[in-house]
Design a protein around this nucleic acid. Structure first.
Lengths: 133, 133
DNA sequence: TATAAAGTATACTAAAACCGTAAACAAAAG
DNA sequence: CTTTTGTTTACGGTTTTAGTATACTTTATA
C-alpha cells in the first residue's frame, strides 16, 4: 500500500528543480536530492517524457522544470512513475472480477474505487508550489 | 500503491464466513471464496491469530467468524495481512527522513501522513456488515 | 481405540516487482 | 575535436508477493 521509492525520489528531484528555478546538470540534482546519479537519470528521463522537465544536451546541459509549480501536483508526479493510483488490483482495466455479491460490480470493488478516487483527487490537489517557501 | 492479493482474499474469505454465519471447513471456504485451499489456510491462520476467526480442530472442524461484523472493518482486515496502512515508506517508524525543507519533519512527509490517516480512518469506518444484505 | 478428517507449523519456491547499475552511444558547447 | 553532458537499452541483485509442500497434531466418530 505504498508508493515506490522511485516515485518518492521523483518528488524530491522535482522539488530541487522547483526551488532552484533554473537549469541544473544531473549531477547537481543528484547531490541536492540525495538520489544516486544513475537512478536520478532514469527518473529524469521519465519526467522528461511526460513533459514535466525539459533536458538540454551537451556540455553545460542539464534539466529544468517545464511545468508550472502551481499546476504540477504530487499526484501527477507519482502517477508518472508508478502508474495509476489504485488501492486494489481489482480496479485495473484488465481485471475481471469474479467476486460474488452484487449484480454488476461487487460492493468491495465499489468502495475501493471510491477511496482510490478520493485519494487520487487529494494528491492532484496538492501542488508543488504548496511546498516551496 | 495497492493492497496485496492476500489482503483482498482475506476480505473475500471473511465475507463468506460472515454471510454464512456458521462454522465452515477450510475446503468450503476455499470453494466459496475462490481462493486455493492452501493459500486460504495460510490466510485463515493469520486471521485466527488476530482473533478475527476461531478455528476448530479435528474431524468436523473448521473456521467461524469470531468478530462482530458490525465492528469488524476492512481496515482491520487489511492491516492484519499487510501491516500498517501507509502510503509512503517514509512514514514507517524506522525511517529516518533526510529530506531537506523543514525544521523537524519535511512537508511532504506531513501530507503523506495526513493522507494515510484519512485513508486508514475511512477503511476502518467500513464495517463488514455494510457489505452483507 | 483406530482412523480419517480436519487444522498447525515451518519451510520452501517460482515469479514478479523493485531498486538500482553498466556500457555504448549521441548531441552540443567551447 | 574533445569534453561534458544527456540517451538508450539492457542487465542484474534483492526483496516482496503469491502460492506450495511436507510433516505434524488434534479430535469426532464409527
Amino acid at each position: 500500500m505504498r508508493i515506490t521509492h522511485e516515485a518518492d525520489y521523483a518528488v524530491r528531484i522535482v522539488y530541487v528543480l522547483a526551488a532552484e528555478k533554473k537549469m541544473l546538470p544531473a549531477r547537481d540534482i543528484s547531490e541536492r536530492s540525495g538520489v544516486t546519479l544513475r537512478f536520478a537519470l532514469k527518473i529524469l528521463r521519465k519526467l522528461a517524457s511526460e513533459g514535466i522537465v525539459v533536458s538540454y544536451k551537451g556540455a553545460s546541459g542539464g534539466y529544468e522544470l517545464a511545468a508550472d509549480p502551481k499546476e504540477l501536483s504530487l499526484g501527477q508526479l507519482i502517477e508518472c512513475i508508478d502508474g495509476p493510483l489504485e488501492i486494489n488490483h481489482c480496479l485495473s482495466d484488465s481485471f475481471d472480477c469474479t467476486r460474488v455479491g452484487d449484480k454488476r460490480i461487487c460492493r468491495f470493488r465499489r468502495v475501493f474505487s471510491e477511496l482510490s478516487i478520493e485519494l487520487r483527487d487529494k494528491l492532484y490537489s496538492l501542488k508543488l508550489s504548496d511546498f516551496i517557501d
